[in-house]
Structure formats: C-alpha cells, structure tokens
Write a protein that binds this DNA or RNA. Structure first.
Lengths: 227, 227
DNA sequence: CGTCATTTGTGCGTATGTATA
DNA sequence: GTATACATACGCACAAATGAC
C-alpha cells in the first residue's frame, strides 16, 4: 500500500543529505567544525551506516564536507555548487536566455579587446563553416556548427571560469532545443548578424561587439517574455 | 608502505566515479542509455557493491545519472555541474572578478529597466545602511553590509538563475576575502560610487547603471591583471 | 618510536520495496 | 497473480589511515 499521498518515494539517503545540509547552513556545524562520526550519525538519524556514508560522500563531492580517513569529517563550505546549478537549469527559458545573453555579450566585448590573431583566425574559420541554416543537411548539425562559432568567441576571452560556465550553458541549451524549435515564430539570427559580430571583434570594437550580440539575442528574449 | 609516489591516497570510490564519468563523456554510454546493474559494475571495476553504490549516488545527485528503483540506472547528462563550479572556483582571482563584474553589470542594467518601487526602496535602504568603510566596527561587518546592497540589486532583476549564480559568487568572494584585503593598494569603491549606481537604477538609466558598475569594478580588475 | 584507540574505507550477506514481463 | 530483476537499506567484519600517548 505504501503512502498514497506521496507521489514519489524519497530515498532515505536524500533525506539524510537534506538534514546534513540543513545542519551546515544552520551553522549548527560551522565551517571548520568536525562533524560526528559515521556511527553516531547513524544513530542520530536512525539509519544504517551505509546510508550515512552515501550522504556524506555526496556532500563531500560537492565541496561542503571534507572526509579524512582515520581522522574525521569536516565542514568546508556552506554552499552546495550542484544546488546552484540545479536552480539555474530548472529556471525558466527566458531566464536561461538572459544568462546566455549576458555571457555572450561579455565574451564578445572581451574578445574584441584581447583576442590574438590566432583567436581571430579560429573565429573566422568557424563562421565560414557555419553558413546559413538552409545550407545544412540537418538542424542538429547546423546547431552544432553554430555552437562552434560561439565557442570560438568564448575561447578568445582567455577566461577559464567563463569558458566552463559557457560550456555548461551551451549543452544545457542543446538539451532544451526542441522547446525552442517548437516556437516557429522565434526570430533566428542570420549569417549577416554573425558576420557583423565578427567584424566588431576583429576591429577591436568592444562596444560594437556587445551591441551585435544584443541585436542577435534581444529579439528572442523579448519573444520569450511575452509568453 | 603504501605508495610513496602519491602524496594522497585516492579512495576507491573516487576512482570509480572517474571511470563512470569517463564512460559517459566518452559516449560509451550515451544519454538515455541504461547502464549495467550494481552487481555487474561491481565485477567490472573489481570493487564491492557498496563502493559502486556510493559512486552512482554521487553522479545521480549531480544530475549525470538517474536511478529508478526496481528498474535500473540511466544516463541523463554528459556534464557534471559540480565539476563546472569546481573549475570556476579554482580559477584565478582576476577571472573570478571578471565574472562578478559581468553579473553585477547586467544585474544593474536589468534593475534599471524593471525594478519595482518596492525593489528601489530596498536598494536605497541597503545603501543607507552600508555607509563608508571607516564607519564600521569591523571589516567583516562592513563587507556583509556591502553585500546586502549588491544583493538587493540582484533581487531586482527578478531572475532566479542570476540570483542563484550571484549567491554562489558573493559567498565565494567572501571566502577569498583575506587574499583581496592583503592587496593594500587595491582601489575600493566608495559610497559616492554606490550612490551613483543607485541613482542610475532609480532613473531607469540602464546604460548609466552599467557604466557605474564598470567604473566601480574595472580598476580592481586592472590591478589584478598586473599581478 | 611504537602502541593503541578512533575513524573512515571496503566488502559481503540478507531482507525488503518496486517495476516489468 | 506470479515470477524475476533490480535498487534500497541494514548490519557485520575486517582493512587502512590517523592521531594521541
């Protein structure tokens, strides 16, 4: 029979993870504190030691805890990076595109001021290879080529943090692609707009590059805001 | 004796996690694929079932895998969000501040165009409470009040994804604070600069707000670029 | 320097809940 | 409805690492 009220049964481990997380953000166990050992936690939460271990392992992998064999487990951070990413990916399509716009816009600006000749060659090559959407054999392939162009721009920022963040977004967007493609009247930036962006970067015109991105993505965001 | 070559011994679980991650990014197990069951993985990696379970739990929590009791475990994503955040937080101080600047700048721009009267009141209140650095009893307290002001601006963007990302950064910056404070000649934006930012937001001047943020943070970034 | 208690690491066996054929 | 496959959870035992004495 189980519980007809709850649609999904939450695994015990997830409950333990939540309780541990709460105890940390609560500052019951402040950063630097050594938390009780596995046997004690097992009693405290009334679960098996294996369950406690799985919960600790998850939090340790996300950076909140550090486990030292033979010593103990210590609190290292109050924030869970994977929670941040979860919130981002569960946010709406408009919010998602706004973040993407923010990344592209700044990347374009940085690329304009600090791209090397080698960077510019790579961007131009990617632009040439991209072509127009009707040139492509399949939509998936075109999207993939389009992403290569945008990735080349991000590379030119020479900012590892920005590259990592953009990598996550481009894949995330790719996953939500069918949502976007179903909106038939969504404005799609053409080759000319992309060329304009490249020209601004090549000319070292940071403001122009930013405006080019804005004119490319703003219409999409506006459309999404209406929904 | 162990292995004198490796400073730290890597737990078996971490090795299994890496191998699983590789098999996924390799596309050996593409997205949607059902991976072997725990007993098979236990044999494949020559480790106990518990070890496999802990590894699967970690990857499931980070969104790469989905575990369905009574059915099996499926690949859901090729990217690990916590890896992205790890890369971001291990990047340099300059790269970190550039991302922060990007967030603040866009938030200010959005706040200028879509902040409600209630948002503005909260920002103004936080600004009044912030004061100057010499007014404060301790530096930590001042930093905390300064963050409240910037958080109020982010809130006004009404973008949950942006708020989540900024929350992570503000705490991350707070943790690296001692690094920044040791650089004595680092330019610190004063109250007047913050007032200017608020005025631009209140006036609905998106470009002015963006410029205000730029003049606040750009000197710090330039300083960090010299190092 | 070694001994010993503590703590995490690893593995195995077993019973139970759940989905699918 | 039943059987089977699978994940869930627990408990126990021993190994390995650490820190204190």
């Amino acid at each position: 029979m189980a519980s007809p009220l709850s649609i999904v049964r939450q695994p015990l481990v997830d409950i333990v993870i939540d309780r541990l997380r709460t105890l940390i953000t609560d500052k019951t166990w402040p950063v630097g504190e050594k938390i009780p050992n596995e046997a004690e936690l097992s009693q405290l939460f009334d679960v098996g030691r294996n369950t406690v271990r799985e919960a600790i392992r998850v939090l340790s992998h996300s950076g909140m805890l550090e486990v030292l064999q033979g010593d103990g487990t210590y609190v290292r951070s109050e924030i869970d990076p994977s929670e941040v990413m979860r919130q981002i990916s569960t946010s709406g399509l408009r919010e998602h595109f706004e973040l993407q716009f923010m990344l592209e816009s700044h990347a374009a600006s940085h690329a304009a001021t600090r791209s090397t000749p080698s960077d510019l060659r790579k961007i131009q090559k990617a632009l040439k290879n991209r072509g127009e959407i009707n040139d492509s054999s399949s939509i998936e392939e075109f999207i993939s080529r389009d992403m290569l162009f945008h990735n080349a721009i991000i590379e030119a920022t020479h900012n590892e943090a920005m590259k990592a963040l953009y990598r996550y977004f481009s894949l995330s967007v790719q996953q939500n692609l069918h949502h976007v493609l179903s909106l038939k009247d969504l404005p799609e930036p053409n080759l000319a707009a992309h060329q304009k962006l490249f020209d601004a970067i090549a000319a070292g015109d940071a403001e122009g590059a930013q405006n080019a991105v804005k004119s490319m993505l703003q219409p999409m965001i506006n459309k999404l805001s209406e929904l």
